[in-house]
């Protein structure tokens, strides 16, 4: 089936949500998920060793050519559980996005973005849990907002704690942001090469034709090279994508990296531009070093 550029997912933690328009959601659940009296808060008690895929569902009507942000809060009584949680989005007609990323329970609100392009209609957001470690899950504060043009001009990263991950040969691993008194933000994502060689962001909504400014701070335990790619790309989709590479010499002290890129508009040459999404992909080149990244910012430049 031909994939349509319709529904884009992005897992991010919510910061301060703007005054975007709230879209009514129709909520439901299945399996061992239970709703409270309001019907907006859900709980699931997982018994040890008993696997069951069940879900909380949110359904809404979305317009064409629009950016949306879906957000929720999913917490677990068992901190650090490695059991998977999956988000699936199914749209009208041919739009059916299978799982392409997972997320972990977190105390923060999490979010993802989507762009409907030419496919308006009914969309279902399915938060699926397949736990088999004994714990209690709670899910609530589900929200869907339509982003205005001013929303798209705001800072696109809100909290690196849940917006970055490390692609590994064996899968992927959440990036860990920890307190770091040496960092210009007081926190940093630190990791050790060569076991971890890359840091990648989730997908961020961008508007083709607009210029975006990237800023971040980076340092290494040794001098090393890095390549930072701003990539109009979304994993499950197909088609040529376009990107801008920034080569960086990482030093032993914090160094600020800045770059600007006008996102092209030629969707014929780069069909992936129709996704309306961009991700950052940083690759580091050293046999062994510790790298720290902080203060990642991506924002539309006002013209």
């Amino acid at each position: 089936m031909k994939q349509r550029w319709m529904t884009m997912l992005l897992l991010t933690a919510a910061g301060t949500l703007s005054a975007a328009d709230a879209i009514p959601l129709q909520l439901s659940r299945n399996g061992s998920w239970k709703a409270d009296e309001s019907g907006k808060q859900f709980t699931r008690t997982v018994k040890d060793g008993v696997a069951e895929w069940s879900q909380v569902l949110a359904k809404a009507e979305l317009e064409a050519k629009s950016y949306y942000r879906f957000s929720w809060r999913m917490t677990s009584s068992k901190e650090g559980s490695s059991d998977p949680l999956v988000l699936e989005v199914n749209g009208p007609e041919k739009v059916h996005l299978s799982r392409y990323t997972t997320f972990a329970p977190a105390p923060d609100i999490q979010q993802f973005h989507l762009y409907t392009d030419t496919c308006p209609g009914t969309y279902t957001f399915s938060l699926r849990s397949g736990m088999k470690t004994a714990q209690t899950l709670t899910c609530g504060e589900l929200k869907l907002e339509k982003l205005s043009s001013s929303d798209l001009e705001q800072e696109l990263f809100s909290s690196p704690a849940t917006e970055f991950f490390h692609p590994l040969k064996s899968g992927w691993r959440n990036a860990v942001e920890a307190a770091d008194d040496s960092s210009p933000t007081g926190k940093s994502i630190s990791f050790t090469l060569p076991e971890i060689y890359s840091l990648r962001s989730a997908y961020l909504p961008v508007v083709p034709g607009k210029t975006y400014r990237l800023e971040l701070w980076v340092k290494g335990s040794d001098v090393l090279g890095a390549k930072i790619r701003m990539d109009t790309y979304m994993g499950p989709l197909e088609g040529k994508h376009c990107y801008r590479d920034v080569n960086v010499s990482v030093s032993k002290s914090w160094k600020k990296v800045t770059a600007e890129w006008k996102v092209p508009t030629d969707t014929a040459a780069s069909p992936m531009l129709r996704s309306g999404m961009l991700r950052l992909d940083m690759k580091f080149n050293s046999p062994a070093a510790t790298v720290s990244v902080a203060g990642v910012s991506l924002k539309m430049v006002k013209e």
Partner: peptide
Amino acid sequence: GFVRVNAREFRNRGGR
């Protein structure tokens, strides 16, 4: 530019 103060004794570990 900006100034950032970091210490664990502060809420949010500091400010700017």
